[in-house]
Design a protein around this nucleic acid. Structure first.
Length: 601
RNA sequence: GAUCUCGUAGCUCAAUUGGAUAGAGCAACUGCCUUCUAAGCAGUAGGUUGUGGGUUCGAUUCCCGCCGGGAUCACCA
């Protein structure tokens, strides 16, 4: 049941009959009436005044009269300047409420919630995509939370979505940590070092850089130029040699590689678990980096690519405002984009009917993905336009940019531990729990800490660069995850009191709604539209802000109304049902953000 | 140098994709717990939307210039 659709049809009838204007109902723009004015939906009439040849006020007046006279849908209207504010019959709001409260699938099942049939598209979301040479940091956290949430939102909106990860597990940077461990590690393992595997490997990556710099420094002292020093440093040679061995499949090197990578995966696994993200399939770059060469070779014949004298293969993208781009080196080896060409082809081959491949990758790679898409356009792949780069902004710190060299990177594991600890301290200070060390309490601390972190990150429009202030992220008041979680727990508490006083599912009749009650019903009614907007824009932020609005609106209602009153059973029954539905909407919205809401806190 | 992108209250973010008097939270100040969870609610204060033009009934939103931040432009990934 969507009121807007019917009203649009009525308005287009009004335009036709009053002014003989042909206006398709789907083009009519209806917006929610601002709360300073009376009404539910507002039509902006300026666009019609040219043809109506009347003032905006008179035009609005005439359309309003037409609508009220026409049907029982609109009960009244008022005109402010060129804005026609329409009031929908209270009974219809109430009927809607009764319908969704008796069966919440009317709200959450996309097939039922939308009047138009939703199509079930087959989509793939690639996110996370870490390197195996260092642990995850704050930038990865935004990536993971976004990728997971976007996937959940797309699923909830009726799409078939597979979440995939592409792990960058090979290359010279991986060899650096391997070499450092081999030379200086003395057989250290995560067990012996009592360290998460990804952190241990990261330690050797940093160590490599340190030793390497030391070599350069001493070479410079001996009077070499920077360029020469760079070339002559022994570690540089050794690491190149290791990469050659790896590519040649040298058993010892491969074994070391496998061993250290397995440490990293165990570490990542833990972090992923804490973040609550998951994947349907994991791709490894070591298995995909050779893909794409074939595409380059074949398309040479097609004439899309061209070969330079030195044997390297290029594509000319200057006609679409991009540059010439290498897709295969002169020695026949792949560059970064060759591999992405291969994996994209592979994924569309493996998944017939795949409509969209969404890459959750930071906006520093905008150019790369423009090129990738353009290459496939030129190759004439029908799915080329289905490649979509969900380009999110960088995360800044109050101290500025995160720079690994300056050690200002915020480590994901440390961040999680700190924020959960903070939640524990605050919860204990509140003194509302019975047992602070139970498993349930531990889970609560985790859910609250992660709720704060996730909400803080996801409430910001993905496209925008954001500032991560650690002090504010653990804030629990105001526009925060814990505020919404608190509201949910509060509702649950009221519901259990209601059950004691009124029993299960008490009956209620049609009644006059207060403005706060109606405001809540209208917000609930907005859930499907919000979800759809979040899915279309790939924006969890819309869902986050919606959840906040609902929680805020409920608290307002809660403050002004007694929900459970033994002497007012009818009223209580209605308000309990409204509260219950509100909690369901909050829970569902938050779960799309990957945030759990507690029953008590 | 070229291309892209961002600039909204002291701070962090919104603004239904061109609509009404630009909204929230934090920080500051003031009230409200004998009641269903005060991690709450209500109020005060805070704005020339970087800047100058243009487009139109109407611009934070679209176009152009300028100022300021950021990113990219590798036979790195």
């Amino acid at each position: 049941m969507r009121f807007e659709k019917e009203i649009r049809i009525l308005i287009s009838e009004a335009l036709k009959s009053l002014y003989d204007i042909e206006y398709s109902s789907s083009d009519i723009l209806l917006q929610e009436t601002k709360k300073e004015f009376v009404g539910d939906l507002t039509l902006v009439v300026f666009p019609f005044t040219k043809q109506s040849k009347k003032s905006p006020e008179l035009t609005a007046e005439a359309i309003g009269k037409f609508l009220v006279g026409k049907q029982s849908l609109i009960s009244g209207f008022n005109v402010v300047k060129g804005f026609l504010n329409l009031e929908i019959q209270d009974k219809l709001w109430f009927d809607y409420f009764k319908k969704v409260s008796s069966d919440s699938s009317e709200l959450f099942d996309p097939a039922k919630a939308y009047s138009d049939k939703v199509r079930s598209g087959k989509l793939m979301v690639e996110y996370s995509s870490p390197n195996t040479n260092k642990p995850l940091h704050l930038g990865h956290v935004r990536n993971n939370l976004l990728g997971y949430s976007v996937s959940r939102i797309l699923r909830a909106a009726g799409n078939e979505v597979s979440m995939v990860n592409l792990i960058n597990d090979r290359g010279v940077h991986i060899c650096k940590s391997m070499l450092a461990w081999q030379k200086f590690g003395n057989g250290e393992t995560p067990q012996s070092a009592k360290m998460k595997g990804d952190h241990l490997v990261g330690k050797y990556y940093v160590l490599f850089d340190k030793k390497y710099k030391a070599q350069i420094a001493s070479l410079l002292e001996r009077g070499l130029s920077e360029e020469e020093a760079d070339k002559q440093a022994p570690l540089q040679h050794e690491v190149q040699e290791m990469l050659r061995k790896w590519e040649a499949g040298d058993p010892e090197t491969i074994e070391l590689w496998k061993r250290m990578n397995s440490w990293v995966y165990a570490g990542f696994e833990e972090t992923y678990k804490a973040l609550g993200v998951e994947f349907d399939k994991i791709y490894y770059e070591s298995e995909t980096y050779l893909l794409g060469k074939e595409i380059a070779a074949k398309s040479l014949e097609q004439g899309v690519f061209y070969k330079k004298e030195d044997g390297s293969i290029w594509i000319d993208l200057t006609d679409v405002g991009l540059d010439n781009k290498v897709v295969l080196r002169a020695d026949g080896t792949s560059v970064y984009i060759t591999q992405d060409m291969g994996t994209a082809q592979l994924r569309f081959d493996e998944n017939p009917g795949l409509e969209k491949l969404i890459y959750v990758v930071g906006n520093e790679q905008d150019y790369h993905f423009k090129v990738l898409k353009e290459i496939f356009r030129k190759l004439g792949r029908p799915w080329a336009d289905g490649l979509y780069h969900l380009s999110y902004g960088m995360v800044d710190l109050p101290s500025g940019k995160m720079k690994s060299r300056e050690g200002t990177v915020v480590d994901a594991d440390e961040l999680i531990a700190e924020i959960v600890e903070q939640a524990e301290m605050t919860t204990k200070a509140m003194g509302k729990l019975d047992d602070y060390d139970s498993e349930e309490a531990r889970k609560l601390y985790h859910d609250l800490g992660m709720g704060a972190l996730k909400y803080f990150i996801l409430k910001v429009d993905p496209k925008k660069r954001m500032l991560f202030n650690p002090a504010e992220s653990i804030d629990l008041n105001g526009n925060t995850g814990p505020f919404i979680q608190y509201t949910h727990a509060r509702i649950k508490s009221v519901l259990s009191k209601g059950k004691k006083v009124l029993g299960e599912n008490p009956e209620f009749q049609d009644r006059k709604m207060s403005t706060e009650e109606k405001a809540l019903i209208k917000l609930i009614y907005n859930y499907p539209d919000t979800l759809q907007a979040a899915a279309e824009n790939l924006s969890p932020a819309l869902m986050a802000n919606y959840a906040y609005d609902v929680a805020k609106s409920f608290n307002h209602f809660y403050h002004d109304h007694v929900i459970v009153d033994e002497n007012e059973k009818e009223t209580s029954a209605f308000r309990l049902r409204l509260s219950e539905l509100t909690s369901a909407v909050i829970k569902q919205s938050m779960s799309l953000l990957g945030i759990a809401v507690p029953e008590r806190m």
